[in-house]
C-alpha cells in the first residue's frame, strides 16, 4: 500500500494525522504483575508490549539447546562471570500483526532483537553489583504497529526500574524516518518522528535509543537504504524524540511512586521532601 505523499505535502500531515515531529500516544504502566520482581506494560500507538523482569537471581541450569533465550551480556557470556548476565526472551504473539505469521524459536530477527535489548540494558544496568547472577527479561509482543524494537527497549527499561535494579539512567528509544525514498535525491525531505507500520514499510527509517537526557546513543539500527546526507537529520530528530520518551517514562515512574506512598505500600523516604505527594 503506497503512502500517499501528495497528501503529506498538502497538509503536512501524515497518514495518521500527526505532524512530522509528533510522537504517537504513549501509555505505560509499571508493576502490572504483582508476583513478578518487576513488570511493565507499554503502548506506543498500536504497538503493545508487556514485560516481566525476574532477578537478579542465582543462574539457573545452563541453557542447553534453548536458543530462545540467547543474549548474554556484553563481554561476559559463559559459566562464571563477575557481572550479572542479562537474558532477554521475546515472544511475539501470533495475533500481534495483521497476517498471522508463525515465527519459530530460531527466528533470526527475534534473536537479533533479544541480543540488542540485552546489550543495551546491560550497558545501563549496574550489573557489576550482582556477580554470578542473572537477570531475565521476558518481553511479550501483543500488538505490532511499527517501532517494535523501540517499544521493547522502553518496556524493558520500565520493568527494570520497577524491579529496583540499580541503573545509570533510563534507556529511552524511538524511531525516526525520512519522507522520501532513497531513490529520490531531493534535499527538501522532511525527517519524521515515530514511524507506524505503514510508514516503516514505505520509508527509510532508523531506531535510536539514548541514555537518559544525554545525546549518547546506545542503540542505532537502520534497516533500509538511505542517503548518508539524510542520516544527520534523522538522527537529530530521533535523539530529540528519545528525550521526549524519557520524560514520559519518568512521569510514569514518578506517578506510580506517588500512588504507592499515598496508599501506604511503601514508607516515604527521606530524599523525597521535594516531591509533592499530597
Amino acid at each position: 500500500m503506497p503512502l500517499d505523499t501528495s497528501t503529506y505535502s498538502l497538509g503536512l500531515l501524515r497518514v495518521d494525522g500527526r505532524r512530522w515531529n509528533e510522537l504517537r500516544r504513549i501509555h505505560a504502566q509499571i508493576r502490572t504483575q504483582a508476583a513478578a520482581d518487576g513488570s511493565s506494560y507499554l503502548e506506543m500507538g498500536h504497538t503493545k508490549v508487556m514485560c516481566v523482569v525476574t532477578g537478579p537471581t542465582e543462574p539457573g541450569p545452563r541453557r542447553g539447546g534453548n536458543v530462545g533465550s540467547a543474549g548474554g551480556a556484553g563481554a561476559a557470556s559463559g559459566g562464571q562471570h563477575k557481572d550479572a548476565e542479562v537474558l532477554v526472551n521475546i515472544v511475539i504473539a501470533g495475533f500481534s500483526s495483521v497476517d498471522r505469521k508463525r515465527r519459530g524459536k530460531g527466528d533470526k530477527r527475534t534473536l537479533e532483537m533479544q541480543s540488542t535489548v540485552a546489550n543495551a540494558l546491560a550497558a545501563s544496568l549496574h550489573i557489576h553489583l550482582f556477580p554470578h547472577s542473572q537477570i531475565t527479561i521476558s518481553l511479550h509482543v501483543l500488538s505490532q504497529d511499527g517501532s517494535l524494537l523501540a517499544a521493547l527497549i522502553n518496556a524493558a527499561t520500565l520493568a527494570c526500574v520497577d524491579a529496583g535494579i540499580p541503573m545509570t539512567d533510563y534507556v529511552a528509544a524511538c524511531t525516526a524516518g525520512s519522507t522520501s525514498t532513497y531513490a529520490a535525491n531531493d534535499e527538501s525531505a522532511d525527517p519524521l518522528l515515530d514511524l507506524n507500520h505503514q510508514e516503516e514499510q514505505e520509508l527509510p527509517g532508523l531506531t535510536v535509543a539514548t541514555l537518559g537526557e544525554t545525546d549518547r546513543v546506545a542503540v542505532l539500527v537502520c534497516e533500509s537504504r538511505v542517503q548518508v546526507s539524510r542520516l544527520e537529520g534523522m538522527l537529530a530528530v530521533g535523539v530529540d524524540g528519545c528525550k521526549q520518551v524519557r520524560e514520559i517514562l519518568d512521569r510514569v515512574v514518578r506517578e506510580k511512586g506517588r500512588k504507592m506512598i499515598q496508599e501506604g505500600t511503601v514508607e516515604r523516604g527521606t530524599g523525597l521532601n521535594d516531591m509533592d505527594v499530597d
Binding site: A118, A120, A123, V217, L220, V221, C222
Partner: peptide
Amino acid sequence: EICQIAKLGGTPVEA
C-alpha cells in the same frame, strides 16, 4: 547510500 546500520547495544556513544 547507507544500506544498514547496526549498533546493537553496548556502551552509549555520542551521536
